[in-house]
Simulated scan of single mutants.
Amino acid sequence: MTADSRASLDEIRDFHAKMMAVASNSSDERLEQAFRLIRREAFMGAGPWQIRVGRRYLETPSTDPAYLYQNVLVALDKSKGINNGEPLLHAAFLGAVAPQPGETVIQIGTGTGYYTAILSTLVAPGGHVHAVEIDEALADRTRVNLSSFENVSVICADATALELPETDLIYVNAGVVAPPVSWLQVLRPGGRIILPWQANDKVGLAVVITRREQGFGARALMPAYFIPCIGASDPTQSTKTPNGGEARSIQSIWLKRDREPDETAVAVYQDLWFSNAALGT
């Protein structure tokens, strides 16, 4: 192949956006547009970049942004194991929770703001993203990267201890043993949480929680493993831990103050529990 026959960067970005649209399993054309509009290299720092492969990192041969338009983890802080997550996984997350114009989003764990920017695009016009990042250096990078995004506010704080506004969507980019009750309480009717549920050392699943009139519905989507969410990743708060099949069977979440665990419980924590029974049963 000659240099002249190689796809242009615009063509590579365009194909990447099309792949993300398919991975989202959504008919919303705005998802493809958002992935096409937001340039990943603008959020990754100066190249060459460190790409995670298994337990190792490999440096890209050059600063060509084409290396970033693959389904790869890109190091943001290699010493802490913090990466920009796999695009195909996030595309599936976004398709599952379907952010809409005018909605309020709380993103927990911004990294350097790449997926924050995509969320910002999807809730425009009229929506707002409250981006919460506990790491001060990453929060500062996110502020710089999103300085031109008027519908984003960046907060450096522990999202498990922060007083959160009412919201339509909580988008969590860190592994959670059990969601804090405060996150559930700020969901508006129809509001969603998507989070990586680290049920135990062997079970990690993306879970969507939806606030319904009868309570909180829940469904498992796919395997997902993230670095632990500070303040929500203590395994000792679990008094009943599910195996893989049990974890995938969840259909609802209950606060203990509203309903004590019963024979449908597959996972039990200090303040809440997961049930394999649907709401209304």
Rank of each mutant, 00 (worst) to 15 (best):
I230T: 08
I227E: 12
E263A: 14
R259E: 13
L255S: 01
T264Y: 11
T236D: 14
Q270R: 15
C229I: 06
E260N: 07
I227A: 14
P242F: 00
D271Y: 06
I250M: 10
T236Y: 07
N243V: 08
W273E: 12
G231T: 09
A247Q: 01
G244P: 00
I227G: 10
F274G: 00
L272A: 11
S233W: 02
R259I: 07
D271M: 10
A265F: 11
I227K: 14
E246Y: 01
D262Q: 10
I227M: 15
T241N: 05
A265E: 04
K240L: 15
S249W: 04
I250R: 01
I230R: 13
R257T: 14
L255N: 11
S249C: 03
S238E: 06
S275A: 10
E246F: 01
T264F: 02
W273V: 08
D271S: 10
N276C: 11
W254K: 12
S233I: 03
T239L: 09
R257V: 14
K240S: 10
A265D: 04
S233V: 00
N276Y: 07
D234Y: 06
Q237C: 07
I230F: 11
N243F: 09
P228M: 10
E246Q: 14
P235L: 13
S238L: 15
S238K: 05
E263H: 14
E260Y: 02
I253R: 00
W273Q: 04
F274T: 02
A265P: 10
Q251F: 05
I230P: 01
Q237K: 03
W273M: 11
P228Y: 04
S238H: 08
S233C: 03
Q251S: 05
V268C: 02
S275R: 12
L255H: 03
P235G: 08
T236E: 13
T264H: 15
K240C: 09
A232D: 07
G231M: 08
S249A: 15
A247T: 02
F274N: 02
A267C: 01
Q251C: 13
S252H: 07
P261I: 11
T239V: 15
T264E: 14
R248N: 09
